[in-house]
Amino acid sequence: MAASAPTQSPANRLSHNQRKRWPQSANARHHAHRRSANQSAPPGAITPRRPTRSPAAPAPGLPPPNAPSPYCFLDLPMLPETTPPPRPRLLLPDQDATERLGAVLARHSRPGDVFALWGDLGAGKSTLARAFVRALTGPDEDVPSPTYTLVQTYEPHDPERALIWHFDFYRLEDPDEAPALDIDDAFSLGVSLLEWPGQLGPHLPSRRLDIVLDLSPDGADNPGLRTATLEPHGASWASRLPVLLTAFEDT
């Protein structure tokens, strides 16, 4: 019995021209391309390598690959340094200049202002405070130092002005005793003069104007020679300071 012919697949039964048009697989096309490239290249030529595919671009809003972490503090930009407020230093050649400074501060005071007077014994704190009070009450106002009473109040001649509170905390033994002197009302509603403000400890208000009085080293021949350094604490005082300096220069 004769052997039967092998069964042909549909592709084997195609004609020669039809097989030429039969689609090749991607793998077959790839090898055919490499053979044709190698055959057409001259002897000794270097066959160019297939270019590598560039990595896909990162999605919008995401850092590129291998970028430094934005959460590492070493990669963060340096913050600009804050400029400290100016600390002008005034030369007070005599007692009259100290009194003029006190009067200028008084005339530009507002309700809620706190003036902290710093300095050693004899630096001129009481002289400045006395001139401050008299500028708003009158030149004949008796202004004793409240060393033993710790606080003294004064009514200005102008009823529109706030009550003046003159404190002397030299004998304050415990800062927690200060609230009993009504400092909350004084600091919020009145105009306050503080001698020896360091005795207040945590009760010293953060918004204030420091007046640091120092005996000048050149004042041996002139006991009234002093310097006053003004240190604003708070944005309000920093903006008002140029006005105070101009007013003092004009006196």
Rank of each mutant, 00 (worst) to 15 (best):
A57M: 12
P111V: 00
L62F: 06
Q8R: 11
H108V: 05
L189S: 10
Q24H: 10
Y170V: 10
D210S: 02
I164G: 00
A123C: 12
L181D: 09
A41V: 06
G138Q: 12
G122Y: 08
P70T: 09
G219Y: 03
P175F: 00
R34C: 14
Q18C: 02
G138V: 03
D158L: 04
P80N: 08
N66W: 00
D184T: 14
L194I: 04
P139L: 06
E99K: 05
F248K: 07
F73S: 14
D142W: 05
P232W: 00
S239R: 12
L241C: 05
L101D: 14
L209M: 10
S69K: 10
F187S: 10
R34P: 15
R21I: 11
R240F: 04
R13V: 12
P88I: 02
P175Q: 11
L92K: 03
W165V: 04
G198T: 14
F167T: 00
E81R: 06
A57H: 08
D113P: 05
Y170Q: 07
A57Q: 14
F132N: 01
R110Q: 12
A56L: 14
P58A: 05
L213M: 08
L194D: 07
R208V: 09
T246S: 14
V151E: 10
F115Q: 05
P84Q: 09
P175K: 02
P197L: 02
R130M: 03
L230R: 03
T149G: 08
S109L: 01
E155V: 11
G138W: 02
L245S: 08
Q24R: 14
A129E: 04
I211V: 14
P202W: 00
D140G: 09
L14F: 01
V151G: 02
T229R: 09
D120N: 10
M78A: 12
P84A: 04
A2W: 00
N38I: 12
P77L: 02
C72N: 14
R207F: 12
D142V: 11
P80S: 10
L245V: 08
V191K: 01
L189D: 14
Q18Y: 00
A3W: 08
P232A: 01
R35P: 13
A228V: 07
D158Q: 06
P146H: 05
P10T: 01
L241V: 06
T127E: 10
A123P: 14
R100N: 15
H203T: 13
G102F: 04
A41F: 04
L117A: 04
V104F: 02
P63D: 04
P60R: 07
A162G: 06
R49W: 07
P70I: 04
L14M: 12
R100E: 15
L92N: 10
V243D: 15
T153K: 02
G102K: 02
E195H: 00
P179A: 05
G124H: 00
E177R: 00
G61H: 08
R35F: 09
V212L: 15
S15W: 01
L245G: 08
T153N: 09
F248H: 06
H16P: 11
W165E: 06
